[in-house]
Structures are given as structure tokens and as C-alpha cells.
Design a binder for these strands. Structure first.
Lengths: 294, 294
DNA sequence: GATCAGCCATTCAGTATTGAATAGCAGCCC
DNA sequence: GGGCTGCTATTCAATACTGAATGGCTGATC
């Protein structure tokens, strides 16, 4: 009924994540009775029961679980606000970057190393996630992603193109040999997605990319790559990365999936010096990395 | 330094939008001294000056303006949370829809009329905006848009395809006649974008869509349509809509720009009954509308 | 089965926050 | 220039909120 004080949302999120009033109180640096009262107040304001009390803690109702993502969105925005409030003097402050697990784990570290070397007072937070919506959820300031940004509020720069082709480890090829045909996979193992993401869907070289064609499936690109490296099977990998890792091309010309590499940030952040600094460093570093493929 | 209480963010946003402590206090149902203290506390916590006090009100510093979008994101999430907290019994509650100005102003009203007729206790909020990121900013629950959703957290359903072709009013054609060639526009006026959005960019039928080719420019699709209707010039319009409005096709087969129509919502909201209700009604209504073109 | 750890609800004193009232200031209109 | 309006800063009493302490409860552990 009455719109609740924002503090109450924070309390709700803390209780949901900690699982108890006491835990939430510890996390927020407050007392357990306070949290209890705040949750009660929120329930009264919204007119909905949020938790069923139990001696082991609070069990969230279905209603509370539905509210959770919204409270998390608030928390993400609050964190972004605090980051944005850091005075923007040269090469100082916090910048939060998101990238896929593979890119963040392989390509970015050397780029960030150089950046930190040049700007020791710059703090970097790296969020590895395969969700493409981190920026708009304000869970990061800058994103490295493999798709053109479609949202108007985002400012992006294309840093190059990168083909995904098929690769396997040298050991795997030694054991199983090169497959002769893309369609005939007998005797071979193909590593791929559990849930095929939208950007990867479709038909490539008469090869319908769908769940069923994969013999070993994971939605983590990191896990996929690790399995390819370990000789589990054949899988897709970006060419420059495969080259760096010493993987062996499979059916070299039969399969190619082009991707665009982008560095993206909020329009809001364009004016910030440190954001620009990191943005430009990422653009430059990725350009170099992608051009190594030639 | 210390991370501020969320109430302070709310105070910040209120002062930014109202322009004064007193105004913000009225808006929030609090007193002016309270708001003054909260802003002071926020400045102390963040270590940044947010406003310069003046007898006419508070003038935000550059820092405060940079924080504003984040605070707005929090407010949007809070509003979405409150909406989500409304008990989800059949055909009751609030649903917030976003669409472009033209679609929201022409296509949706009859659909929503029927929906309301069938569910009198359902409340509809319609946000007309040409920003494509409303959903992720949680400024709306359901979006009608002309592009495939690319973000993972969104659930979308394609309701059909709609071609954009060139049209003009009957009066305009009477005065200026039909142009004979797409490239030769002498004696004709072309209505289009000021800032060409990403989805409309590119080359269509050897026709590079860019700012310079337009003689009358607006970023509001509503204004564009109004100008076409008023006989200002030739412009792009979706075929079924143009048909409904009685516009005259121009260079009928020379120019065609295909668009997909989608209804999109958050994955989170899929389980909500009233969201489903509105979602399905929009899908059905738009399907009918788009099929009228055949 | 007794002990212990962890949790929530309640009480009560202390504190921190709030708001009404007031003073002071700048700009606008007659 | 006088009167008016709207704004901020400050004071002070009243209120609301907080947290330490306590009791009661359940479930795990030995």
C-alpha cells in the first residue's frame, strides 16, 4: 500500500541472501531485532507475507522470491553509483569489467596487466559471466562481448572480427584422426552447448547448431574450452585463441562462424576519465590480439 | 567511504528531480530539514560535494549529475518491485507496457481496450518511448518492439513481420506527384531521422540510410508520422499502419525494409498470471494487426 | 537423551532521527 | 522600494528507531 522506504528493500535482499535475520544483521552491521522489524514493516507496506518464520531461519515465500531480482537490480545500481562517485582524477578509482569466462580468463589478463603497470592506482574488478545484460543491469561498467550492442543507451566500439572454427587437441587428433566429413561424426566426440544461446543459433555450413548435435554439453564456454584442451572432443573456438593455445584445426574450411568483437560501455560513463582509460586500453589490446590471427 | 543507506539515494534523486530540498521534501512526504540532513550525510559518506546551496534551490554539481542515472535505475527497480508485489490473482494488478510512440499511439489502444473490457480490474500503464532498453532498466514489464531481443534474461515472442516502405499523404502526392527515382529527390521532401538508430542503419536498395539524405529530421517516430500525414514529405512507415491511415505508397517496390515485431518480457515475470494475460493479449492483438496487411 | 549452537520474538533504555517553528536571504511584481 | 514568495539553515522538543539482553525454540552432535 504505502511505498516502502528503500532501506527496507536492502533489508529484504540481505535476508534473502543470508537466509536469516541474524545473518542479514551481521552483513549489514545492524542488529537482529532491527532487521526483524524492517522485514515486518515491508510486509505490512506491501501487504504480502514475505517469509515464514522458522527456528532455523526465515523461509522466503514465493512472493519474496519474485521480488528478489528487483532488489538485486537496486543493489547493482547502488554499487554502480558508489563507483561513479569516486573522484575522477587521472588513473585512479574502480572500474568493473565484464567478459565471458574464456575471454576474461585468457585474453584480458595480459591487457589488464599492462594497464595496471601504467596506472598502479587504478583498481579493476573483473566479472566473468556469460550473460550479455550485465551492463544494463549495471553489474559492470564496461563489457567485452562478441555481439554488436543493440541497446540505445550503450556506447560501443567494434574492435575486430573473430572467426569461430572447429578445433581439437593434438592428443585427440592423434588418437581419433581428423574427421572426414562434418555431418558424419561416428567415432568422434563433439563438445558444445547445453542451451544454445541466441547468437550461436542457426545453420552454419549446412550444420544446424542445436543441442542434439553435441555429445558433451556445457553452457560454460570455459568448460567447453577446457574439455577441448583435455582431448575430450572437437569443439568451436575462436581462431586467435586456438592458435595461442596450440589447438589443431579440424575440417579447416568446412565450418566457420564469424563473430564481431565489441567493447561496450554506458553512454553515461563516456565522460569519465578512468572509464575512457580502461575502455581505450581494452580496445587497443583486443585489436592487437585479434590481428595476431592474420 | 562508508556505503550510504539506500534512503539517501532516494533523497538524492528527489532533490535532483525537484530542484530543491523543500520540493523534494514535499514529494517524499518529509520535511525540508530532513532532506537537507540526508543530502549532507550522503555527501559525507561519498566524500563528494553534490550540490551548491543557493537561495533559489540546490544546484547539482557535475558529480551529482553523474550519479543521477544510477539513482534512477534504483527507482525504476523499486517501482518494478512494488508492482511485482501485488498479489497475482486473476486479471488484477498493474502491468506496465512500453512501446514506441507510434505503435503505442495507434496500434495498442484498441488491443488494450479489449483487454480492459475483459478484465476491468486490470490496470495498465503505457510508457511511450523509443528507447529499447526499458525492460532491462525495469521501467516496464512488457515491451513491444521491432527487433529481436538479444539479451539472455528476456523472453520474447515474435508476432510477425512488418515491412517499412515509403509513403506520403494523398495531398502531398497531388501537389508534387510521384517521384520517379529513389535517388533523384529534386522537388521532393524526405522525412527521416535526426540520429539514425542502429536498427535502421545500413543500405537498403542502394539507398544509404544516413542523416544527410533526409530533408526534415526528427528522432520521434510520432513526429515523423505526423509530418508525413500532414503532407510535409515522403517518409518510411510500416505497411499495415500506413494502410490503416490511408497513406499513399511511394515507389512501391523500390524500397522495402523488413522488420520483425516482438513482444518481450522479463524471464522473471513469466510465472505471473497477469503478466501472461497481458503478454498473450498483445501477441494475439499484434498478430491480427500485422496479418491485416495481407 | 543431554548439551550446545543458532535462530526468532520481546522488552526496555538510550540514542538518533524527525518535524514544527523561526530566522535570514534572494528574486519578482506592483 | 515595499511586500510577497520560495528557498536554506538552525534550533529544540517529541518521536521513532535502534541495540543489548533475555527467553524460548528447534535441530545437530556426542
Amino acid at each position: 500500500m504505502a511505498d516502502p522506504d528503500w532501506t527496507l528493500y536492502r533489508a529484504l535482499l540481505a535476508v534473502l541472501t543470508e537466509g536469516s535475520l541474524s545473518g542479514a544483521a551481521r552483513a549489514l552491521g545492524q542488529s537482529q531485532p532491527t532487521l526483524g522489524r524492517q522485514i515486518a514493516a515491508l510486509e505490512a507496506d506491501l501487504g504480502v507475507a514475505l517469509f515464514t518464520r522458522s527456528p532455523a531461519g526465515l523461509i522466503p515465500t514465493e512472493a519474496a522470491l519474485e521480488l528478489r531480482p528487483h532488489a538485486q537490480a537496486m543493489a547493482a545500481a547502488a554499487a554502480a553509483l558508489v563507483r561513479a562517485a569516486i573522484p575522477d582524477v587521472d588513473g585512479q578509482g574502480v572500474v568493473r569489467i565484464t567478459a565471458s569466462e574464456v575471454v576474461g580468463g585468457t585474453v584480458l589478463p595480459p591487457i589488464l596487466a599492462e594497464l595496471r603497470e601504467a596506472n598502479p592506482r587504478l583498481q579493476i574488478e573483473l566479472v566473468l559471466s556469460n550473460r550479455n545484460d550485465d551492463l544494463l543491469r549495471r553489474e559492470a561498467d564496461i563489457a567485452v562481448r562478441m555481439a554488436r550492442p543493440t541497446q540505445g543507451a550503450l556506447y560501443g566500439r567494434k574492435v575486430g572480427e573473430s572467426e569461430v572454427r572447429l578445433f581439437a587437441s593434438a592428443g585427440y587428433i592423434q588418437k581419433h584422426g581428423q574427421p572426414t566429413d562434418l555431418m558424419d561424426r561416428t567415432g568422434h566426440t563433439v563438445v558444445g552447448f547445453d542451451h544454445v544461446p541466441a547468437y550461436a543459433g542457426g545453420v552454419v555450413a549446412n550444420f544446424p547448431i542445436m543441442r542434439e548435435i553435441f555429445d558433451v554439453r556445457s553452457d560454460s564456454d570455459l568448460a567447453q574450452l577446457a574439455m577441448i584442451q583435455a582431448g575430450v572432443g572437437i569443439g568451436g573456438c575462436q581462431v586467435p585463441l586456438a592458435r595461442r593455445l596450440g589447438l589443431v584445426p579440424v575440417l579447416a574450411d568446412a565450418f566457420s562462424f564469424p563473430m564481431e568483437a565489441w567493447v561496450v560501455m554506458h553512454e553515461d560513463l563516456k565522460t569519465s576519465r578512468r572509464m575512457r582509460l580502461v575502455f581505450d586500453a581494452l580496445v587497443e589490446g583486443l585489436r592487437v590480439f585479434l590481428s595476431e590471427a592474420d
